[in-house]
Amino acid sequence: MTLNPNPELPARPGAPRLIYRKPDVLADRSTHYCPGCGHGIVHRLLAEVMTELDLPAHTIAVAPVGCAVFAYDYLNVDFVEAPHGRAPAVATGIRRVRPEAFVLTYQGDGDLAAIGTAEIVHAAARGERITAIFVNNGIYGMTGGQMAPTTLLGQRTTSSPTGRDPLLMGYPIRITEMLAQLPGVTYAARGSIADASQIGKLKAMIRRACMVQIEGGGFSLVEALSNCPVGWGMTPQESIEHLKGPVVEAYPLGVIVDRALAAVVTEPGPVPDPRAVPADGPAPDATAVPEA
């Protein structure tokens, strides 16, 4: 993580100095998120990036419906609450009348990949100059852990009690890869909050996505694979292991497209079935994050 240098460096070498502190844009309060939840990490990364790029005073953000509905309580920027899934449309409206603003949506996988597919696809297709932060934990957390379109095959949720069966419930959606097909999408990447190394890479992705908007590019999207210990029925530690294993297998990490750099980095592969016997082939390269 980036060190926030103390503007007033001490004159005396060796004296204590501030090397790291909470970004001001992050509100000074505890969150409603469950213990071990990854939302706090994504909030923090977003706050750091916004501070480093001097964005908070120009930002108009759109809060989703879902666990992050109270995002405006934790990030001190102007916020409008969108109906479930409609954040990209709301952001479009803001963008069109406020060309100078930094426009951001923060959405979960139920919001973005289920009820809001039309809005996200068409905002991306129009190449709206907005940045979408997409937190994918494969479950509806706010409503008590129901199956999401991103839920893994075989995963048990309160609405797929015997596990997600593709014959009855279909397959997980890799929506970031789908969106990356669209020429309006300038940047699309998938990171994870699983450990410090991944968090650092995720931050670089968020930073790059924001830069694309600042530099006048089109639609930018960062999918953050996250955990939901309560919804997954795991301890926070188990949920992180699960995230590093089957979740990353189903959703390969890396930059999927960066059209500003004229680069298509990752081609989407087949969705692995966690119930199937593990294949001997090499696992998807989970660390392929080029320098932004």
């Binding site: 108009i60 759109v62 409008v80 969108a82 109906p83 409609r86 449309a89 709301v90 952001a91 479009t92 409206g93 803001i94 963008r95 069109r96 009348v97 406020r98 603003a101 039309a118 809005e119 696809v121 068409h122």
Partner: peptide, 17 residues
């Protein structure tokens, strides 16, 4: 917009400013 849902929510965003 892509739908009336899209149109009215774009209006929500623009009007919020």
């Amino acid at each position: 917009a892509e739908s009336e849902l899209g149109a009215i929510n774009m209006a929500l965003g623009a009007a919020a400013t």
